[in-house]
Design a binder for these strands. Structure first.
Lengths: 347, 347
DNA sequence: TCCGTCATGAGGTACGTGCCTCATGACCTA
DNA sequence: TAGGTCATGAGGCACGTACCTCATGACGGA
């Protein structure tokens, strides 16, 4: 089987000729400028469809003599995963310097919707084409997203979605599947009957709720020799997570497994070490970091599920380009896969 | 932390001015055209470094009025993984239609180095910028790769590398790590003492050898209650793999696990079904496909390691763009991660 | 009927790079 | 010294799109 290149691509000139209108009119339609009668616009749309015309991104960005400007809004506050997202953005900046792309990363005070909202309100379509946000599922945030969209800034949600908002796209993993996967691994690792403790960041967070649901479903259905203790909340914080883990460990001597579906892994590792249970309990947690890598190597953690921050940033940028290309068309993006890391396939 | 966009990027005009030469000379240097004295070229190189000039890929592809032409050479022969690579290429074709990229996929007779070599010999730099090849590690292939490189076709190896050749880059997973991961999972799933059977495609293949080495290392070091039987060869073929699996199963009644590090999964699944051992033996194999997905859902397979064909194709194209941009510079590409799939995180 | 508004056409320049032609001067060789 | 080769400069056109100005014709209301 050989696939050959298709014939020459259609240009705006071809569209104009086919539609029987001038270049200027095609341009008005393509860039949603006023001054075109609906029936004329339709002729153009039809020609575009007939020729399968797609605007040439290279030429387009070149002609407007400016970059595609993408702003990231990420929570701060020492959360290792969020920091790795910021790191991934910085890496992309280096790689995309010759691709007419300007990336700006900006952190807002975590767990503070008002801080995020004021950042969103400050965005406008003249300075920003697209904003990629990691946002809590809050009605006021949804409103701010809708308002920014009306000002011409396309919004893409990252990690945690905002269904019901005007956001153009969501980039993230299937958190239910992540929970199911954790249960499936822990269920097979813990062969003797016993208890499995669950630590969440906060059940107010959509992604954490979904992970727990997936986990509980699979464990209840397939691993009935294990029962669930919790979830208890660690608020994505090392100190509070350590306290939660210590409480679990002291109250349930027959604990054979732990699933930490939030952040705060350093606290969890510390608690396992202090109680001398590291290695005796099977532990699954989320997000690769220096802490979790070290704990995997030491055998304190057995599995780390990872949502691949570099992949998410790449996908977000690709989605932003699609938005720039055709503001209404549906966005296609490769699904972000859940990475499963053991000591043996650490990167 | 906020990262702002840097100042305006340097253009060829800036380079010419800084170097004190004309645009034409800069162009000659940039595109490796003859007619420039070494010391003049050096002035230009220095200006490029001083200004951190990078050629604008969009403008470059636009100006040469042709696409970046990438040809893929993939083995045929019903191997499900190779077919999925071809499918991934087809998907990319659709996504990159407006990115000045022409992808051609071409399959050659599997296990036939001569067929690959004649394809390589037919490539030339006027029609192809870059060839991405899945190639056996054969001295004659290495020679053909070197010759194609001299004719101006950059070669990128995919899945299996050709160290010692003039290939510009390798895209693929760490096969040692894949083997280690398989051992680590199988070792924890098989808690009772017993035997683990190994089926390879062919130990003549570099990637298969590496997987086996990784597997044997971890199993011997960490799971001494398990012993290895094999490897036996299935030649990446369903029928032969089924025969190999049947032989393993009949000769070793105390087999508690199987690791199939090659293709031919349909044969393995058939053998497990016929001997009524499906579900009683822990099985790890490679590459997601309809067969392996179904077997995961049915519980016949426990884990499938996957090298993410879509990601590999994406990475290969990104690498090809880098080659086009600067023919000598080192290529940076995100590592391809080993996907670990259980029933619960199937996509 | 006159003027204003609107839809559209015509044509240009610009973006950054590739690639072409032609001219010029320096240097080498016979 | 004439003819040749070579390094370089000067300039222009092209790629496909964005965006600008100006002209023109149609149609409406007063």
């Amino acid at each position: 089987m050989d696939e050959q290149a298709e014939a020459k691509r259609a240009t705006v000139h071809d569209v104009a000729r086919t539609a029987g209108v001038s270049l200027a009119t095609v341009d008005r339609v393509l860039n949603a400028r006023p001054g075109v009668r609906p029936e004329t616009a339709e002729k153009v749309e039809n020609a575009i469809k007939a020729l399968d015309f797609r605007r040439d991104l290279s030429a387009s960005l070149l002609a407007r003599a400016r970059d595609l400007r993408v702003t990231f809004l990420i929570p701060d506050g020492g959360n290792a995963f969020m920091e790795s997202l910021v790191g991934a953005i910085a890496r992309r900046v280096r790689q995309t310097r010759n691709e007419r792309l300007t990336l700006a990363a900006s952190q807002y005070h975590a767990l503070d919707p008002a801080a995020l909202i004021s950042r969103l309100d400050a965005l406008n379509g003249r300075e920003t084409d697209c904003a990629v946000i990691v946002a809590p599922d809050d009605p006021a945030v949804v409103k701010a997203v809708d308002a920014a969209t009306r000002r011409g800034v396309a919004i893409i949600t990252l990690v945690s979605d905002l269904p019901g908002s005007a956001r153009r796209h969501f980039i993230g993993i299937d958190n239910q599947a992540a929970g199911r996967t954790a249960a499936s691994l822990l269920g097979r690792f813990c062969t003797a009957p016993g208890k499995v403790g669950i630590i969440a960041g906060s059940l107010g967070l959509r992604d954490h709720r979904e992970r727990f649901e997936g986990f509980a479903g699979v464990l209840g259905r397939e691993f009935q020799h294990l029962s669930i203790v919790g979830p208890t909340e660690g608020f994505d914080d090392d100190v509070q997570t350590e306290a939660a883990a210590l409480k679990l460990l002291s109250e349930h001597k027959d604990l054979t497994g732990i699933y930490n579906l939030g952040a705060g892994n350093a606290g969890l590792v510390a608690a396992l070490g202090k109680t001398h249970r590291a290695g005796n309990i099977r532990v699954v947690s989320h997000e690769l970091s220096d802490t979790t890598r070290g704990a995997l190597r030491a055998g304190t953690l057995d599995v780390v599920l990872d949502q691949n921050p570099d992949g998410e940033i790449r996908a977000a940028i690709a989605a932003a380009r699609q938005v720039a290309l055709s503001p209404d068309a549906e966005i296609h993006s490769d699904p972000i896969e859940i990475g499963i890391f053991l000591r043996d396939n650490l990167r």
